[in-house]
């Protein structure tokens, strides 16, 4: 948003825009002051966004710098494109995000939701997080109005499944089970490389001497790693 674009906006709209961007303008600010506040706010927001981004993301972001965005009123066209709010099916999906966080979304089909609510012992809708190895689990209470959640998964490189269900008369009743997700590793594996586990991709294996026996295979990765860090 540029200065001149802000200048053609009525005062009330400027104040609304400032508030919608999390700024707290004093009531007696004039248009020019509001514009200054907004421009500073935009600059700060941009810097904040960029600080969290690594170089690859920053460079890629620059690809999408084209120009001024349309004023808010004109950009509202997207609302006319109706898309389903939900698909009315009982389902829970788990998506790995990093070594400790996953995203889950779910839905409960209307008739099933009605039956569940009528269950006389119904206490609480929950997500049960199943750590598959070693088997353990914990519950996250959720509301009917929830449909997605970020879930902390304690272990990296571990398999998880999510169960959507509810507690009734002290027991867990399953509504749906998610796909299985393995959390990514967050560090170097303790497993040493094995000599036997190499593979020839085409070509002739005789052409290669193979790993030198003088080197301890155990030690090489660390040396390579420290060479990388130098």
């Amino acid at each position: 948003m540029t200065r001149e674009r802000l200048r053609i906006m009525p005062l009330a709209e400027l104040a609304t825009l400032a508030r919608s961007n999390g700024l707290e303008p004093a009531d007696d600010l004039g248009a020019e002051e509001l514009i200054e506040l907004l421009l500073e706010g935009y600059q700060e927001m941009r810097q904040e966004r960029e600080e969290g981004n690594n170089p690859s993301v920053r460079v890629e972001e620059a690809k999408f710098e084209a120009g001024e965005e349309e004023p808010p009123a004109a950009g509202a066209g997207a609302e006319n494109l109706s898309i389903p709010q939900r698909y009315n099916e009982t389902r829970v999906v788990l998506m790995a995000r990093d070594p400790h966080w996953a995203y889950a979304y779910w839905d409960v089909e209307d008739a099933q939701a009605a039956r569940t609510r009528r269950d006389s012992g119904f206490e609480q809708l929950v997500l049960r997080v199943q750590d598959l190895q070693p088997a353990s689990s914990f519950d996250i209470p959720i509301q009917w109005s929830d449909s997605s959640w970020y879930i902390y998964l304690p272990n990296q490189d571990a398999d998880y499944v999510l169960e959507l269900g509810y507690l009734a008369s002290g027991r867990f009743r399953l509504l749906a089970r998610s796909n299985q997700v393995r959390t990514p590793r967050e560090g170097i594996s303790g497993e040493a490389p094995e000599e036997s586990e190499s593979l020839f991709l085409g070509g002739s294996p005789e052409a290669f001497a193979g790993p030198s026996s003088a080197m301890s295979s155990e030690a090489i990765p660390q040396r390579i790693l420290s060479a990388m860090r130098e």
Binding site: E191, P193, L225
Partner: peptide, 12 residues
């Protein structure tokens, strides 16, 4: 580097 086994030559 975070593969299930340590890569013998790192990324090289």
């Amino acid at each position: 580097l975070y593969a299930d086994r340590r890569p013998r030559y790192g990324v090289y």
